[in-house]
Amino acid sequence: MAEASVAGGYAAGEGRKLNLKGLASVLAPWALPITLLVLWEIASQSGFVNARLMPAPTKIATTFWRLLLDGSLFFHTLASTQRAVIGLVIGGGLGFIAGVLTGLWKPAETLLDSTLQMVRNIPHLALIPLVILWFGIDETAKIFLVSIGVFFPIYINTFYGVRTIDPQLVEMASVYGLDRKALIQRIILPGALPSILVGLRYALGFMWLTLIVAETISATSGIGYMTMNAREFLQTDVVLLGIIVYALLGKLADVATRAIEKRVLVWHPAYQVKSGSAK
């Protein structure tokens, strides 16, 4: 503010320059992708790249429109999202419960933690052949894999969050007569929340990754199935569209967690909007 008043007569010109600068900084991140898209379009239109292997962006856009109209895009996206959400709720829920339990209760830690740390080292995608043997190729198999994929990041970060609560706060709470339930509700869980949300971010990454792999191997619906099916008929445009949908779903999940973080961590200095009200 002080600088603006000092600038005096130059204020208008400065303002316009700033606006242009602002606009440029908003557009800058888009410059590279747009340029690439244009180049790609030109390359495949002119036959410089094989349109069969790398169809033009406009071709993908028409495919998108076609699959949107015949409902199959929606159908497959819904199937994938459903699996993702069910797997996340089951695996994430169990991971959260196990994390809180082992974090708070020493016997649970002794009993569970070393086993879980050991199992964690098995890449869960290595279980695919086994899972197909157990569950066939129906829904259970995919949900099982997703659940395992999200379990560990949530478990580990919940456990860590509960364990690293400031012991001085816990002591204070006991001085003020908080019982165990109030202590967990008001001190331990909110204190562990930032860490739990970090776990959630990782879990969402694993969730889509697991789903992509699981659906390409064994499914009759879902984006992964859609792309594998398209591959057999050499519909490269559908394959690329599938990849784009996965990217968008991943981005959506990330935006959602950021929104949750911003909402529930309002107390955290890192999320506070600097306002003039604080003295």
Binding site: L169, M172, A173, Y176, G177, R186, G191, W267
Partner: peptide
């Protein structure tokens, strides 16, 4: 009641909730 060298306020509770910590 005790007052420690650090205030030991609960960061995720507003001032009034901190004061009424025992509810």
């Amino acid at each position: 009641r005790l007052l420690f060298q650090e205030a030991r306020l609960v960061p995720w509770q507003r001032v009034i909730e901190n004061v009424g910590i025992a509810r």
